[in-house]
Design a protein around this nucleic acid. Structure first.
Lengths: 335, 335
DNA sequence: ATACATCGTCGAAGCGCTTCGACGGCCTTC
DNA sequence: GAAGGCCGTCGAAGCGCTTCGACGATGTAT
């Protein structure tokens, strides 16, 4: 069963090859009758354009690259959500997604760009000092970053507004009458690396808290149960007046609750807890956690939308920040 | 800066276009001197073959598809590990990876196959009654499945040997002198769906346990803390002699430990716990969990290896099962 | 010395598609 | 009623690569 080509369709429909092409692409007006006849033939023969030939002739592959770094301490589930929403959205624009990891290094990006394998790039989990950024400038491929590098000039970046997320947590606790609150963040290694979102959350949290006249503390937090326990214990001892806790560390959130249980602190009677994490993690906890959602699907969707706009030659905003969403559950209460 | 083509390289090196092609592909003998000259030109000009043109002429795109279903209750982190090892391995064979989700339905596979966008497929998380399987047979695209459908005849499948994994847990507990042991598995919905690996783990566990003359219990396990608590409590009440627990549910494993703590059972003094989960989850727990590893990276690697062999026309085994690896940590002891 | 492989290289023919220019036929417009 | 426009369609020229057959130049066997 030889694969069916555009020539087969043309013959079957009794028109020229170029006519079929124009019907399919809509780049020239074709009469309704011809168009219908062609479409019937397309369906009858089960025609699918050959991707290579199309790419060669049109200089567009209809494929975008999704570039994941692979670092320790990444939020795997969230990444996965990003990835799937990127794929789904790309398909809506008739594009496919090539999955790349950064372990091929800069050459990977170079290769993919130079070989015209992809029309554009979506880079995930961009850090403050990301090696991929200068390369991106050099290549001049259309691209969208998820996350913000130090120098974002001339780049298109999308992310959740983490500063707002931190602030929303502080605001919520303030509104409940808490006066002394703490943020438990990512492991130290993440801050050392210069990971923008972690720092921005802290800043937003501290700023908002202080704006409400609260005392704010912000500590990094490792991810093993024993370390979380020790951290929480030390935190409560050093700050006896502490009544509100924000956890921005998906792997540790379960352990924080366990630690409070072990230490005999009730949630929310003794201490209110807000998590920055996906809804399923928050709902699975006991008590169900008041949480701020990272809208991973939205971010992926926006990233692709922006990239598609750029491919069309449309100018897009440099920076897109997505609003965090607070869901109040059972782990916070009036103090 | 026009993109550099094979003709540019040929001119620069003073040879014919076809000679350059043969140097690069190695499909015909070329003298060492010519070859070197060509390679020098390739580097000097920064030549990268145009993917579309190559695919069109050679009928091979050097891209494989990675097809993820998107279902509730999936092990996201493990999936991610699969995915990255697939990408890394594919690159070693000079292939790229197209990421597809099944939400485009069967048409997605059909489209990708018919358009010659990919040379082959890796399907992840295949279920007992997977809709993609009949389609795969129809398309006749080279493919490898991760997981086993009910009828695997004529297909190439790879997976961790989950029956062995269950058995290894039972064996380990038996060797420590436990007489009554239980398996806490996936949520009910996963079994209902007919998910092979969950059932196979249970069977391997039960069979091995009974082989040692032990009493074995196997229960599904939901993933919220409260439900886990209730389940563990009921389990211990109904089986007072129970001293060994196997947890095959990544999301619940932390909660099981928390539940035991709440119920006043010490690990490992009162009850030994073995988890089937990634090492980082096991190490993060307190006490660090004796665990059986799901070698996600290996599975991905093998899947790609097999697919590449098939693309070369080599015959490969229908079924590849990977040995689970038991790591003894602090959560199990002699009874 | 002749016949015949073998080796290294070249030229040209596509691969299946898009797109440009051309060209009839038809409708306006004065 | 002639000049000009627009519409719908066609043919052909590539896009950049692989691969086939051809062809001198060597090397080997007779």
């Amino acid at each position: 069963m030889r694969t069916v080509t555009i020539a087969d369709v043309a013959k079957h429909a009794g028109v020229a090859v170029s006519t079929v092409s124009y019907v399919l692409s809509g780049k020239r007006a074709i009469s309704a009758t011809t168009s219908q006849r062609v479409m019937r033939s397309v369906r009858a023969l089960g025609y699918h354009p050959n991707a290579g030939a199309r790419a060669l002739a049109s200089k567009r592959s209809n494929v975008i690259a999704l570039v994941l770094p692979l670092r320790a301490g990444m939020h795997l589930p969230v990444l996965m959500q990003f990835a799937t929403s990127v794929v789904t959205t790309a398909r809506q624009f008739d594009h496919d997604v090539l999955l790349m990891t950064a372990d091929e290094g800069p050459d990977g990006l170079r290769r993919v760009a130079a070989s015209a394998l992809v029309d554009g790039l979506v880079l995930m989990d961009v850090e403050i000092h990301d090696q991929r950024v200068p390369l991106l400038r050099e290549l001049g491929e259309p691209s969208v970053l998820i996350g913000f590098p130090a120098d974002a000039s001339g780049l298109t970046c999308v992310d959740l507004d983490f500063a707002r997320a931190g602030a929303v947590c502080a605001d919520h606790l303030a509104s409940l009458g808490h006066r002394e609150i703490a943020l438990l963040g990512a492991p130290t290694v993440v801050y050392k690396r210069g990971t923008g979102y972690a720092e921005r959350t802290m800043e937003g949290f501290a700023e908002a808290g202080q704006g409400h006249g609260m005392t704010t503390i912000a500590w990094p937090c490792e991810e093993s149960f024993d370390e979380v326990c020790a951290t929480v214990k030390a935190l409560l001892e050093q700050h006896p007046g502490l009544s509100g806790l924000v956890v921005h560390n998906e792997a540790a959130v379960g352990h924080v609750l366990g630690a409070l249980r072990v230490l005999g602190r009730r949630v929310p009677e003794d201490v209110s807890v807000v998590a920055i994490c996906p809804d399923d993690v928050a709902e699975r906890a006991s008590p169900a956690l008041t949480s701020v959602l990272i809208p991973a699907a939205d971010v992926g969707h926006q990233a692709v939308r922006l990239l598609m706009a750029k491919l069309e030659g449309v100018t897009v905003p440099d920076s897109t920040l997505l609003e965090p969403r607070l869901t109040i559950r059972d782990s916070t209460r009036r103090h």
